[in-house]
Design a protein around this nucleic acid. Sequence first.
RNA 1: GCCUGCAUAGCUCAGUAGGUAGAGCAACUGACUUGUAAUCAGUAGGUCGUUGGUUCGAUUCCGACUGCAGGCUCCA
Length: 646
Amino acid sequence: MDIKISFPDGAVREFAAPTTGMAIANDISSGLRRNAVAVKVNGALWDLTREIAADAQVEIVTRDTDEGLEVLRHDAAHIMAEAVKELFPETQVTIGPAIEDGFYYDFAREEAFTPDDLVTIETRMRDIVRRNETIEREIWDRQQAIDYFKSIGEEYKAEIITDLPETEELSIYRQGEFLDLCVGPHLPSTGILRDGFKLTKLAGAYWRGDSNNAQLQRIYGTAWSDKKQLKAYLKRMEEAEKRDHRKLGKTLDLFHIQDEAPGSVFWHPKGWALYQVVQQYMADRQYERGYKEIKTPILVDFSLWERSGHAEKFSDDMFTLETDDRRYAIKPMNCPCHVQVYNQGLKSYRDLPLKLAEFGSCHRNEMSGALHGIMRVRSFVQDDAHVFCTEEQIQSEVTEFIDFLHAVYKDFGFTEIVYKLSTRPELRVGDDEVWDRSEKALEKALNDNGLDWDLQPGEGAFYGPKIEFSLKDCIGRLWQCGTMQVDFSTPGRLGAEYVAEDGSKKAPVMLHRAILGSIERFLGILIEQHAGAMPAWLAPQQVMIATIVTDANDYAEEVCAALRAHGIRAEVDLRNEKIGYKVREHSLQKIPAILAIGMREAEEKTLAVRRFGSQNQTTMTLDDFITSFTQEVENRELMAATPNAE
RNA sequence: GCCUGCAUAGCUCAGUAGGUAGAGCAACUGACUUGUAAUCAGUAGGUCGUUGGUUCGAUUCCGACUGCAGGCUCCA
């Protein structure tokens, strides 16, 4: 009997039933068969060797596609597990998925793996690939599977199966002596993985992601369709690490952190200049959009935190101190203080929405292992603001905020933003009906803006749902920056109210929101985004005036004074060095414009302008330079447009 | 906080099978007055993260602590 197989290009061909993905690929071309790793049957990923017995829509998945790579990476994880079981039979295997760029597998073993073990394991993996073991899919009975894994000491696997829904079909993949529970699909044999993989790092990971559980040993690896792709990836990572903000913070002399103040930043003149540009920019944009900037205390009596609910939920993260028989907390958040400002004087519905903003200095006693450069610190400043509004105003305020955030991120050059919506957790305050409305409001705002977003069920704050806006660092790690949180609880707890149209007193809704998140974290991402070469409007030092001969010093000073008078951040380099030396040094410092001044320029009252990223020089008058550079800064241009961008 | 690893000059790094360390750049001094990514010569610079132990002797071996890196957990 023949079955009809239709392909993505619309073609339909008949095959004798049953057939397989492998047979179909082979029938199309030997090249396709060689590159095939799986097959999509009516949209579901299947093993190449699995029988196709009825008419179907079929697509061969090749090794260089995203889905193909996922299969390869998943197989790499299984092959690693097989290698580990061969080398260290006392080890229990747990789970091992494919992840972005690679894979990992979590192992339970008394003894710790060493970096040397990684080399041994990788070598054994290559043996297994060379053996080209057949990988077979088997359907097992639930109890049989539990008994089997228990019998070989794989308690974790048995636990996984026990927790699977009864209805689930149990597929077990067999490769050589190694059997693993897995939904698949997998390669027909281990040899197909080839040699585009490498084990990268060793880490601890909690069983089922819960820090109350046992800690397992996780081995990470990366895997690609071939060795060339692997090398390209390793090269990419190496290049990306050059953009690390911690490295650039040092070489560009922006900031440092030292042992005596872990998680707190010492800002150097150039770093602080950048910091202030960003903060002032934010202050101006907020002013334009009707925010009122305030400043509240850092040290506040602990009782306020008890009333706000922070003491209960946050006390582990709070720094506290006792003096004169009073207990204080160093604020970890600004919200309770903002409510105190709101509470001064009677508010009417006509005052809403009231937007109170603060560059609030917060301190949180983050766990030592969580600290990371200036991205995750213990002392940071939030571009925090609280919008006090009525329930009816939530929707428009959230929409307005997303628009605001986009405008800001665009100015800084960020285009890739990851959106997440976190909804009601189990432990929460407020009626479900109110939660329904606020979650809907956030969801609608995301959808109205046509954004792709991920749902994080149960991840919301106890007082309300939130949207998280995350940006990626140089190696693709995600950092939450912006946030929008709906809060029905805090205003009531802290006695905030307004007089409504009907004369009754009501508690306002509070929207906690930040765009940069923390200025420290945002600057870290910003530095990595631009690889330290900041656009003119952000560059801490915008212009360096470098003299060629000492006789040009006076003119150089004159130029510097004129630039500074126009608000341009300029310095002079009068050192007795060759121009080539100065150009090299200031280029390495990634200064947007170097103005070289020799006798020619001094006599003609001109400048030789060299922009960062270009080898060219353009001679122009001081006035022309000031005009064009000022324009570039005012427009917040991301790329040097004039005078000689490459 | 947990797991693994790391800590040598201002920076980037080398080194010691246990006998108190070296390079390049930077700094300082002198010469050179220079035209777009490193001018030459000389000088100086280190309790080898802190702290216990083993040893005749520890920067090196072992332990603790602190910090950092990667990951987990947690978060802006």
